[in-house]
Design a protein around this nucleic acid. Structure first.
Lengths: 330, 330
DNA sequence: AATTTTTGTGGAAACGTTACCACTAATCCC
DNA sequence: GGGATTAGTGGTAACGTTTCCACAAAAATT
C-alpha cells in the first residue's frame, strides 16, 4: 500500500540503511545515490515525517502561540516567523489563545507533546509570571510581552518609550487633557500605560488610563462612554491597532471631528490608518524584524544553550498624521 | 531522561498496554485508570505525538495552504479553520504560497510527507488544473478558488453574482463607465472579472478589466496609471480588500474625491472600510462560515470517502456606503 | 610489503507508542 | 450448574525511520 524506504531500497538493490544514507547526508557512492534517487522517482516514495521525528528525536517544528492571528500585529509577525521557519526547513504550529490563560496552559502542554524544537510565545500577564524555564524541555522566546527577569530570550518594542513619544508629540501639539486606553490582559498594555503615565507626570500633567478587554468592540464601547462625558479628554492614546478601529468608530458615531473635537494617537501602522481622514498618528512597530529576530534568537539558543539570555528591544517609529494636528489656541 | 509510557506503567504497577489503554478509550477498571492517572501526574509524563502518529497512522493534522495569511480574507478564514480543528483535537499546519505555483507544489508534497488527515487549499489558477485527486493520499477541500469539474469538495463565494451585484448597484446609482481591477493569479479574480463583464454586457455597457499582481502596491500603481488618464472611469470595481487600500491611496494621492471624481466598490468588509470617508461599498464575505464549512466538508469526507463531491456556494452581502453615492446628473 | 586509515555497505537495534492476540476470571443465560 | 460471553489484563509485534556497529575492500601511510 504505502511505499516505504524498504521498497526504495529493494528497487534500488541496496540495503535500507544505504537508502537512508543516500537520501540524507551520509557517505554514499555517487552511483548508488543516483540509483536510490531513481528508485524514489519510480516508486513515488514520500518519507514519513512522523517516523523520522520519532527516530531522530528532531521534530523540526517550532510553536507559535499568540493571542489572535487576526490582530494585525500578530498577523505580520506570524508571517515573518513562518517564512524564517520554512527557510530553515522547519514547520510551524500556530495557536490562538484569545488571551485566555487556560488556553495558554493547554497549548503549552501541547507544545511539550509535540516535542517542538522551540517556541515563540506572546503570553498574557497572568501566565508570564508562572513561566518556569526548568519545566520546559525546549527553548522559548517571548515576543511582545516581557517576561520575568532574564529567564528567557525576548524581543519586544520599547513600549514605555513609544508611549512617551506619543505623549510628547501630543503635548507639543497643544494637547494637555490626554486619556489612555490599554489592553487589560497583555503585559504590553501595562508597559504602555506606565510609559504614558510617566511621560504625563514628567510634563506635570495627570493622566487617566482605562483598561479594556482585547477586542475592537470593547474598545468602541469604552471610548463611546468616555467621549460622551462633558469633560472628555482632548486626545486619546490608544494601545493597539485593533482598538484604533473601535475608537475611530466611536468618534464617528458621536459626531466628533478628528482632531478638532478629539485627537487620536495609537499603535500599529496599518495601511488603513493612512487612509482614514485625517490620517492617524501611530507608532509603527517593526513587525517583520520582530518575527525574524525572534527566530534568530531561537536558533542562536539552540546552538548555544548556555549562553546568557538576551533581550532585544526595538524602537517604534512615530508616524505623525492629521489626527494629532496642532490644537488651535482657544 | 525523557519519561515514557513505560515509566508510567512501572510506577502504576501495570503493563504498558494497560497504561496505554487507561490513557485512551480502552476497557480498564476504574481503579487502574486512577492509578495510571496518578502515575502520569507523579512522573510528569507527556505522550510523544510523533510516536503516537507513527503507530496509530492517524496524524490528527490538517494542512492549510493559502496565498498570504496577511490577506484579511485568509486571516479570518484561517482563524476559523484553526478553531474548528483544535475543537476536534487536530492541529493545523499553515503555509503561505504567495501565489507561487512552485511553492504550492512544494507544500503539497510537504503535506504528503506529513501524512495530513486532510487539506484545505486555496490554489492559484496555474495549479488548480493540474490537481489530481488520485495523486493525493488524503481528502482535499478547495476554498476561494474553484477546481476542475467536481473532483473536490469546494466552498466558495458566488463571485460572479457578487460582481454582478456591485455592477448593478453602481449602474443604479448612475455610473456607467465602470472599470474593474482583478487579481491576475487567482481563480477568484477571473470569476469576478467574468461576472463583472457579463453584468456590464447585460446592461449594454462595455467593461474594461485590468489584472494586477496580488499586492496592495501593484494595485496602487495600476490605479494611479488608470486614474491619471483624462478618460478615466467614473467608478472602479476592486477585486479584494488588499487592492482596496492601494486604490484608495491612489485616489487620495491624485487628489480625487470619492465618489464625486471616482466611485469605488470592492470586496471584503474590513473594519476600516467603514471608517475611511465616505465609507467604502463592499461585498462582505462570510469568512467564518467559509472556514467552518470547509472543515465540515473535510470531516464529512473523512467519514464517507465515497460520497459525491459537494460544492458549497455562499452569497456575499452587499454593504452600501458613501463611496458609491448616487451620481448627480450632469 | 605490512600496517593503518578511509570509504562504502549491510544487519540490527532502537525511537515511543498502539493494536493485536492470548489468556484468566468473572458474569451471564438457559 | 455448565457452557458461552465479557471484562480486564499482559506480552509482543508492529509503525517507518535513523543510527550504531561491524566488516570488507580500497586507499593511504609507514
Amino acid at each position: 500500500m504505502t511505499v516505504t524506504i524498504k521498497d526504495v531500497a529493494r528497487v534500488a538493490g541496496v540495503s535500507v540503511s544505504t537508502a537512508s544514507r543516500a537520501l540524507g547526508e551520509g557517505p554514499v557512492s555517487a552511483e548508488v545515490r543516483e540509483q536510490v534517487r531513481a528508485a524514489v522517482r519510480a516508486t513515488g516514495y514520500k518519507p514519513n515525517l512522523s517516523a523520522r521525528r520519532l527516530r531522530s528525536q528532531r521534530t523540526q517544528t517550532i510553536g507559535l502561540i499568540v493571542a489572535d492571528i487576526r490582530n494585525p500585529f500578530f498577523t505580520a509577525v506570524g508571517r515573518a516567523v513562518e517564512d524564517a521557519a520554512y527557510r530553515a526547513g522547519m514547520r510551524v504550529i500556530l495557536c490562538n489563545t484569545d488571551e485566555d490563560p487556560a488556553r495558554e496552559a493547554l497549548y503549552l502542554t501541547l507544545m511539550q507533546e509535540e516535542r517542538v524544537t522551540g517556541l515563540i510565545f506572546a503570553p498574557t500577564r497572568a501566565t508570564v509570571d508562572r513561566l518556569q524555564a526548568d519545566t520546559l524541555d525546549f527553548p522559548m522566546v517571548l515576543i511582545d510581552r516581557a517576561g520575568p527577569g532574564g529567564q528567557f530570550d525576548t524581543v519586544l518594542l520599547d513600549n514605555r518609550e513609544a508611549s512617551a513619544t506619543l505623549v510628547d508629540h501630543l503635548v507639543a501639539r497643544g494637547y494637555s487633557r490626554i486619556g489612555g486606553l490599554f489592553g487589560a490582559t497583555s503585559t504590553t498594555g501595562v508597559e504602555r500605560r506606565d510609559g504614558y503615565l510617566a511621560a504625563m507626570a514628567a510634563r506635570g500633567l495627570t493622566g487617566e488610563a482605562r483598561f479594556v478587554a482585547p477586542s475592537a468592540d470593547a474598545a468602541e464601547s469604552a471610548a463611546t462612554d468616555w467621549l460622551r462625558q462633558p469633560d472628555r479628554p482632548q486626545a486619546l492614546l490608544v494601545s493597539n491597532g485593533l482598538f484604533l478601529t473601535g475608537v475611530v468608530k466611536a468618534a464617528r458615531t458621536l459626531g466628533l471631528r478628528i482632531p478638532q473635537d478629539i485627537a487620536i494617537a495609537g499603535f500599529d501602522n496599518e495601511p488603513w490608518t493612512e487612509l482614514v481622514e485625517p490620517g492617524l498618528t501611530v507608532i509603527e512597530q517593526p513587525v517583520e524584524t520582530i518575527g525574524r529576530e525572534a527566530m534568530a534568537l531561537l536558533f542562536q539558543r539552540l546552538k548555544t544553550p548556555d549562553a546568557p539570555t538576551r533581550k532585544v528591544v526595538l524602537s517604534g517609529r512615530c508616524v505623525a498624521r492629521g489626527s494629532t494636528a496642532p490644537r488651535p489656541v482657544a
